[in-house]
Design a protein around this nucleic acid. Structure first.
Lengths: 331, 331
DNA sequence: GCAAGATCGTGAATCGTTTCAAGGTACGCT
DNA sequence: AGCGTACCTTGAAACGATTCACGATCTTGC
């Protein structure tokens, strides 16, 4: 089944290929009668524009790549969704890729996107890959870092330090003198920053090292949260406040706490991070730090589009968005 | 910054473009010395193959589209992940799109994929769009339906009826005589089938209509699950068994039940569906029906690849995978 | 020393689109 | 009639790769 080309349409409508192309791209240049005839032929033959050829001719397609470490993290995908919506509004399409937490796979994604001739990339990079990103940018693609402050490219990041501090400060004025911080792998920059922010806020409030404990879990999952709770329950005396660097962690932790008969927040207060959908519907609705996901995605798209629009004199911006405390019941 | 083309490489290495192409695609045809020289030039100039042009020439790219109604549903993305892994192993790349639950957007995705010249599409279609899917297939793309039995194309589906029955039958032998089924929108086929399966199993076991109640929620979210719980608590007498058509629903429901002081499973047993990560880490670890996500994705890719490989005589297969009951604590 | 292969490399044609200079028509005006 | 102006339409030249028929060169065996 041969694919219908613009040429077939031209023949069918009795015009030249140039005219068909004009109907497609600059319809105002074409006489009404002709335009309608061509449109009719297009419909009749079921013609679909071959974007591949169009891109080849035009140099770069109207597609932006979105590279995320995982499709299963609702935080990220939400950012992506907002970004995609913004693109669509501007006639761009999104091309999603996952790096799956592996540098090799990330590399493959970037190669793929570059081969696909995208005009820009929104990427939430693994920590080590900044050089590669710079290289991409050097090749003329617009690059916007998600949730990472970059130096020589645009970036949109949430202020994780401030978010961590927000959480800690919410815990501090209460009676809490012993805090536990539960985090995912500190090798991930955003996690590290939340942790630092919280730590600093606690220290500033006069807590000593003995009053601050950190549990670093291998993953930011509910299962890891449960495990942290088990560990936490062996502490004596029990801490009275816990800041989890992600909601999943917090949900798992609270679940285990509740199972163990510990009252949240009466005995232990818990603050999460992210404000995922589930946070509001948890056993104890979770007090958490909301990150500006949609804003982040939308802004990223705007920056990327601005850069592709006028690559010559475009000064890279590092946008930092502020998180927001959402107080529910858990703290 | 002009993009480096195969021609630039050819000049730099002092060979013809044909030779460079051969180095890229049939290196065995090229003398070792030449090959090395060309490779060196490629590295030096930072040449990246323009997949766009390659595809244009070759007819169809080695890319498969993956169309999902949402990136935030971990069930689906898990299927996609498995599918992508299988593709990568075969030298194909995945192109992800979201239909966002909107027919228009789904259409746009398909157009996009077709314009991008993908050689096949894995799609979890909205219920209404089967004609459009058939059309796509008519245009020579391999199409595999995810979680939907199609007629004229390949499909891989989980047996939702069986899954629903599994859940109901797990509830029945216990003392339960009053069951509540909590579902998402019944307009979605898989949800409907789970419901039917459960209903039939209950009827077969002799339950009457009066003993069976269905709550249809507008969404399959934890928040909707909470709402269902609130409604459920007004029932008199209370039901003793609940089957939720998704884990999210079940988790929200259990959370609210626990908050209301109802003991799960002592007073009410709950079975979910999906076995998402969170199920095991819920307040009451959830008994649920696991769907064969990874299998589904992998099989779908296999079917698609088989069809692209030999489109002429390829008979469409409808694979049906069986779900599996995972017994934890909630029932 | 020479013909027949084997081995490499070449360059033009091609994929389906966009773009643009140039060609047609029709019309109004002097 | 002749000319200028709009307005449409045309056709060929790109874009960057692959492919393939055909030369060019080198081996080999006699």
């Amino acid at each position: 089944m041969a694919r219908i080309s613009i040429r077939d349409v031209a023949i069918h409508a009795g015009v030249s290929v140039g005219t068909v192309s004009n109907v497609l791209n600059r319809p105002n240049l074409v006489a009404e009668a002709t335009r309608e005839r061509v449109q009719a032929s297009i419909g009749e033959l079921g013609f679909v524009r071959n974007e591949t050829a169009r891109q080849l001719r035009q140099g770069r397609g109207h597609v932006l790549g979105v590279v995320l470490p995982s499709m299963t993290d609702p935080n990220l995908t939400e950012v992506g969704r907002a970004a995609e919506a913004a693109m669509n509004a501007d006639g761009f399409d999104a091309l999603w890729c996952t790096s799956d937490g592996s540098r090799t796979k990330e590399q493959r994604c970037l190669d793929f996107l570059e081969e696909q001739n995208v005009s820009g990339v929104l990427i939430s990079p693994l920590d080590l890959s900044e050089d590669r990103v710079a290289e991409l940018h050097g090749r003329g693609l617009a690059v916007v870092l998600l949730d990472r402050g970059g130096v020589r490219v645009c970036s949109v990041a949430a202020d994780h330090r401030a978010g961590g501090a927000l959480a800690a400060r919410h815990l501090l004025p209460r009676r809490h003198r012993r805090l536990v911080f539960v985090t995912g792998p500190l090798s991930a920059r955003p996690v590290r920053e939340r942790h630092h922010g919280a730590l600093r806020a606690a220290r500033n409030a006069g807590l000593t090292e003995r009053e601050l404990t950190t549990f670093e879990q291998a993953e930011s999952t509910a299962a890891a949260g449960r495990a942290a709770a088990a560990r936490l329950l062996t502490l004596d005396p029990l801490p009275t406040g816990v800041f989890c660097a992600s909601d999943l962690l917090a949900i798992g932790l609270v679940n285990e706490l509740v199972r163990a008969g510990v009252k949240v927040p009466a005995e232990i207060s818990v603050v999460g991070y992210d404000d995922i959908d589930l946070a509001a519907a948890a056993v104890v609705p979770l007090t958490t730090v909301r990150r500006p996901r949609a804003d982040l995605g939308r802004t990223a798209t705007e920056l990327a589009l601005a850069e592709t629009g006028d690559p010559e004199h475009h000064d890279h911006r590092q946008v930092v968005l502020s998180p927001e405390l959402v107080v529910r019941e858990s703290a």
